[in-house]
Design a protein around this nucleic acid. Sequence first.
DNA 1: GCCGGACGATAACATATGTTATTAAGTTCA
DNA 2: TGAACTTAATAACATATGTTATCGTCCGGC
Lengths: 205, 205
Amino acid sequence: MPVTYLAINKTMFLHFRDKFPQLNVFWDKYLPFQTRLEVPTKTILLEEGKISQNYIFIEKGCVRTFFNNNGEEKTVQFFFENEGLTSFDSFVNNIPSQCAIETIEPSVIYLLPKQYVTQMIEELMHEQNFAQMMLQMFAQRQTHYINEFISFIRDTPEQRYQNLLRERPHIVQRVPQHYIASYLGVTTVHLSRIKSKIAKGKAHF
Amino acid sequence: MPVTYLAINKTMFLHFRDKFPQLNVFWDKYLPFQTRLEVPTKTILLEEGKISQNYIFIEKGCVRTFFNNNGEEKTVQFFFENEGLTSFDSFVNNIPSQCAIETIEPSVIYLLPKQYVTQMIEELMHEQNFAQMMLQMFAQRQTHYINEFISFIRDTPEQRYQNLLRERPHIVQRVPQHYIASYLGVTTVHLSRIKSKIAKGKAHF
DNA sequence: GCCGGACGATAACATATGTTATTAAGTTCA
DNA sequence: TGAACTTAATAACATATGTTATCGTCCGGC
């Protein structure tokens, strides 16, 4: 069971602030229990195989999640400022995470211990529109993963790179190329070829 | 936005019967509103681009979901007896489905019109453990799609076929090979090569 | 300033996969 | 039964992608 990401994070809170203003109260309430950390690049925030003990919120910087496959690292996802993540499986089922979480820039992060996350969800369950909120949050996460899945079925690595350039250019700008190659499912050599090919195609004399 | 599948179906009901016995009441209550259909192979149950109007439950037979990509059909998923499906996006957002749904065997299916599904969810929201139920249901669906996604990142088409043989042999047995090729993301020719290679590897003299 | 390591481009070659065409076996239906 | 169609295997060739190696640049530590 790989890592999935808990839908309840600050991004969601910000996103649903208008629809569900009561969320602000909860976010503020749990702020004091968070630990602020300043960490350098390549800091492991969660090791593969460990049970996640914290909800991670990114104030500054960015992180990636990845797993080890026969000595080769496979990058699954990137997270940036004002995004939060944790292992859904670890939280719901208390099992080891299949993915590691690592910073790829010097970052400022906040850790909210598991017990408070559980507590916050418990409290949230008594809210009026909780079910509706959950539906929308999960639909959003699910849509993300299905789109990734569909993209692998439908698109070539070159098309996937073009999609990334078009839809999430900040990733291409900020993330080292070998992580992007791993995310696209190709080698660094081939990503380099793809870039070269695109550059030649765009060149006009 | 591609098709995703509503987590609330009979499989879920059967699966969660012990934990949430109150579900049986709901399932029974909505049985009378379902239409029974006997349909031949290659019956389109939902066209790509149409808004899904029914929740589909399979009593006998099997179906696939697929989308058209430059004239080439890409199979996304297979469903069998006692499984239910519909377009999550169509239901939540009333938008056209990106996938078509088609029988690949003579089948017996039940259709529950959209209005009753909505009504059932509304009623379910007032149940005691609804939030808990939703969490588990969505976690399960999400895990499925993430596993598909991870499998594309990690495995070669041959490994994906071996996984299919090992974990879901009923698919290989019942589904025509060209649909499986499309599901694995390769051509029929290459799947044939893979099978041939595996057969030679297994041969012993 | 020098050095070593991380990152990225490129070349040469190997392997995997796609494309097209051909053949054959099984199915459906008149 | 025969004709048309679907499905699957195979061959020959084309393209995409992986592997290994080399080179150059940039950057941080000393």
